[in-house]
Design a protein around this nucleic acid. Structure first.
Ligand code: SF4
Ligand code: SF4
Lengths: 146, 146
DNA sequence: TCTATTTCGGAGTAATTTGTCCGAATAATA
DNA sequence: TATTATTCGGACAAATTACTCCGAAATAGA
């Protein structure tokens, strides 16, 4: 799988949060109910994102999580690397060490291109654009309809 | 990670096998020593490949494994799907069900393109071409040099 | 026939990922 | 102050993946 489950949930949750364009904080429990994601597990994911500085959080009544900066300034790459780390973008496809030096594995050329495209896709896609798309085209993030 | 460890080892082992262009069977133990892969685990991987019809095997002295057909007729996609299954190529990036119908997730367009490119790359790359490249460019498959 | 070599198949162990539980800390509000 | 709502942090449990072990079956060769 390309994305870990944690990252999958992170993408969905953050996209949902961005599309809400809320005034203040949104509680993790409402997000988890809305998207059918385990509350306890989603909490852990958001903890990673706040520790990475992408979200801010607030405890107590009316607390929850919020984007730490404008949606246009948070990319999918930010979310991805905060959760799954950067290894996809520098590692060898075949898991060989010393990737990128003078003795590449046979798939290097093609894989490094794909890898670059994926990196470019994640880096150039910000939450604002995706949230706009969601309004325009009625995209969905839930597992079941209603 | 894009490839499971089993698939990683499978790619490396099969590429190595193809580059040897052996007369008959090559034993799994020699491959595992050559590539620094656990013999027991690599055996399991080859069992998957023989069960999928991509390799033939032979027990006893001078036994081992061999490509079931010409290297030019085995693609990376064959190896990949035999080990990791086909889910990468039809599943949603966000793990949502009913991928591809009228209510796509916000990443559908970009992801389905990437997915298609990856599929195309795997499908159009056969072992013969890679083995030739390995000779020409001295590619490596080992974890340590010597 | 006997022995050595090899894959096969199943069971078992270890490590990682996924998911749960609970109590403490924080803050709003009555 | 007491209550309630919330995130935080750590320990825990379950599931999946990675890896090992061992005995059985096949086969070549002495
Ligand atoms: S090939 Fe590319 S990816 Fe594979 S080892 Fe190397 S440098 Fe790395
Ligand atoms: S969008 Fe594409 S990837 Fe996401 S759910 Fe669907 S079809 Fe799927």
């Amino acid at each position: 799988m390309l994305l870990s489950k944690a990252c999958e949930y992170g993408f969905r949750a953050v996209l949902h949060l961005a599309s809400l364009q809320p005034d203040g904080y949104v509680s993790i429990s409402t997000i988890s109910k809305e998207l059918n994601i385990s509350f306890a597990f989603l909490t852990k994911v958001f903890q990673q994102l706040t520790q990475a500085g992408l979200m801010t959080s607030h405890r107590g009544p009316n607390g929850g999580v919020a984007l730490a900066r404008s949606a246009s300034e948070i990319s999918l790459l930010d979310i991805y690397t905060a959760i799954d780390g950067p290894k996809l973008f520098y590692g060898c496809m075949l898991g060989l060490p010393n990737c990128g030096d003078a003795a590449p594995c046979p798939l290097h050329d093609q894989w490094s291109q794909e890898r670059g495209r994926l990196h470019q896709l994640f880096a150039s896609t910000d939450l604002e654009a995706l949230a706009n798309d969601m309004e325009r085209f009625n995209f969905r993030l839930k597992t079941a309809s209603e």
